[in-house]
Every structure is written in C-alpha cells, then in structure tokens.
C-alpha cells in the first residue's frame, strides 16, 4: 500500500497542491468549515431521534436534512483528499489518521444501521436511539482524531 501513497504524493496533482499558494489553505478551510456544518445537521437529526426535542416528525427532519449532510460529507471527503495527497506517505502511517479512518468506517456503517432500523421499525425504537447516540459520539471523536494528526 505504501507504493500507492508514494505514487499519490509524487503525482503532479499532489505537487500542484503543495506548490500552489492557495489550494492547500482553501482545502483546509473548506474541510473544517464543512465539518462544522455537517455536525450541526447530524446533531439535529440525532438529537431529534433521541427526543431531546420533539414536534416536527423525525422522518420529516431526516428526509430534509440527510441529503444536505451527504453533500457536505462529499465536500469534506474531497477537501480531505486534497490535504491527504500533499503528504500521503506520512499521513497513511500516522496513528491518529488511521484511527480516524477506522472511525469513519464505523460511522458510515452506523448510518446504514440507523437508516435501515428507522425504515423498518420507525423512530420509537431502541436501536434507532442507540445508533443516533453512537453517531453523535463517533463524529465528534472523528473530529478530535483529525486534529490529533498534527500532534502524534
């Protein structure tokens, strides 16, 4: 796998990211700001499922907000890839980065379980609430691991 990361890092795209004055900082700012927006939307859905607030039915909130969350997730991933490419070899070896990727896999799996359970049993369900809670914690953990990359 190391060869793949080395090839990415030595690609002309990665060289462009390193050598451009603005691409890297813009990707960095986009990544972080999109994470904030993403978490706000995710937290709204999860807190509704956890019944921290009620009123608008959960399915209505989720139907409106999940597509936005997915678009933001895509923006986060693209900006993240730009940042990753600039120093792929070191990042692929970075413990915090590896934990972050594993946690993202868990978070995506958790979305799948939450989605499916919600569709089958509705929002008055233990597993739905459990996965909503997991979602809140895991996304915050992912953000924390992202910041930890620079310190390990």
């Amino acid at each position: 796998m190391d060869a793949v990361w080395a090839a990415l890092q030595e690609s002309s795209f990665a060289a462009f990211v390193r050598n451009s004055t603005f691409v890297y900082p813009i990707a960095n700012i986009t990544h972080v700001v999109a994470v904030i927006a993403f978490f706000g939307i995710v937290a709204t859905m999860d807190l509704r499922l956890l019944r921290i607030f009620e009123g608008t039915p959960a399915r209505v909130i989720i139907a409106r907000m999940r597509p936005v969350a997915l678009i933001l997730l895509l923006i986060i991933a693209v900006a993240g890839f730009v940042l990753f490419s600039a120093e792929a070899v070191a990042l692929a070896r970075n413990t915090a980065f590896r934990i972050k990727l594993a946690a993202i896999a868990l978070a995506l799996l958790n979305i799948g379980v939450n989605e499916r359970t919600l569709r089958i049993y509705g929002d008055d369900n233990r597993l739905v609430r459990f996965t909503a809670g997991v979602s809140l914690l895991v996304w915050l953990f992912i953000a924390a691991m992202g910041r930890t990359i620079a310190y390990v």
Binding site: Q9, E10, A15, E87, A88, V89, A90, I149, A150, Y151, V152
Partner: peptide, 16 residues
C-alpha cells in the same frame, strides 16, 4: 523528488 524528512514534518509546536 524531495527530502525524506519533508513529509514527516507535520506536527504541533509543542514538540519543539
């Protein structure tokens, strides 16, 4: 293409 050390140099100020 660049020094081996280059890509490793991403860390917090506290390590200095």
């Amino acid at each position: 293409m660049f020094a081996p050390g280059f890509a490793e140099a991403h860390h917090g100020w506290g390590s200095y």
